[in-house]
Write a protein that binds this DNA or RNA. Structure first.
Ligand code: FES
Ligand code: FES
Lengths: 141, 141
DNA sequence: ATAAACCTGACTAAAATAGTCAAGTATCAA
DNA sequence: TTGATACTTGACTATTTTAGTCAGGTTTAT
């Protein structure tokens, strides 16, 4: 089970954005430089974040991105959902009559993986962008 | 974050094995048929389980595999560890001085991913093969 | 006007996944 | 002793996913 760079970068970038959000739009170029993430890749990621209304864009010079809601109303779940970083513990279709190996019933481990999926998603539900920023920069003082 | 088939199959196969373990060695062919998993693939998986002393092999006719310890002493952690199904939330080296983007310090999300990794591993520590078998076949009564 | 910044879609190298395939060796049972 | 069963090992491969890059735009403040 791996967390992908896309998901990791999305959170990294949004934490950076959340920090400077109050004053002006934050440009991807700045985030790219501060966090060491490729600008082109960030553009892909923010395109998705914008479509899911996590951020808003401001075009033109001095433009950039701003959060579209309060930091405490953005959960990790929302971020991961936006960039298609899904937790998938099974391959069998949810509503299919076929189990994971083509049988008619669900396999003997299916419930376990559902439980695992919930366990992981709970973690993501609990954490808001506000929490993350606070915890991170409190510790550095 | 995805769980791979290898990990899923390993648990599936061991649950099957644990159920019939008391009487005779269980052949991979039987597991293959009952669970719908490729025999060749199972062989790869059990080779690893044997090397990590989760199971023991019995060669020859009427041979197969038996558990090498009591089902309650085999945790999900042990199984996943044996088949290299690792939980990896970060790519940065643990002891390296470099953060995930080549910087000298750890990035702003590093602690978060460590926390996530622990959260997931806790789930795996909690569950023994005995629990899994019991829960699964109790529910079916 | 022009530079800063967002926007879009296509493309790709490298890695990981999910197996298959081939050629064994060991053991039991008839 | 001969076959069948079952474990053992290592190499191979098609497909998918990942982690980006690249090439072109468009918008807007100055
Ligand atoms: S049937 Fe859903 S995991 Fe096997
Ligand atoms: S995740 Fe470890 S430094 Fe970024």
């Amino acid at each position: 089970m791996k967390l992908t760079s896309k998901g990791r970068y999305a959170v990294m970038a949004l934490m950076d954005l959340a920090r400077f959000n109050n004053i002006n739009p934050v440009s991807l170029r700045d985030i790219s430089l501060r966090q060491g993430i490729s600008l082109d890749y960030l553009e892909q990621i923010f395109s998705k974040l914008r479509k899911k209304e996590i951020v808003q864009s401001v075009r033109g010079t001095q433009g950039g991105y701003v959060l579209n809601r309060k930091a405490k109303d953005i959960k990790l779940t929302n971020i991961f959902d936006a960039v298609d970083e899904k937790v998938k513990t099974v391959q069998c279709k949810k509503d299919s009559k076929k189990g994971c190996n083509g049988k008619a019933t669900k396999c003997i481990t299916h419930n376990l993986w559902d439980e695992l999926e919930n366990h992981i998603n709970n973690f993501f539900e609990e954490k808001s962008l506000e929490d993350l920023v606070k915890n991170n920069f409190e510790k550095r003082v």
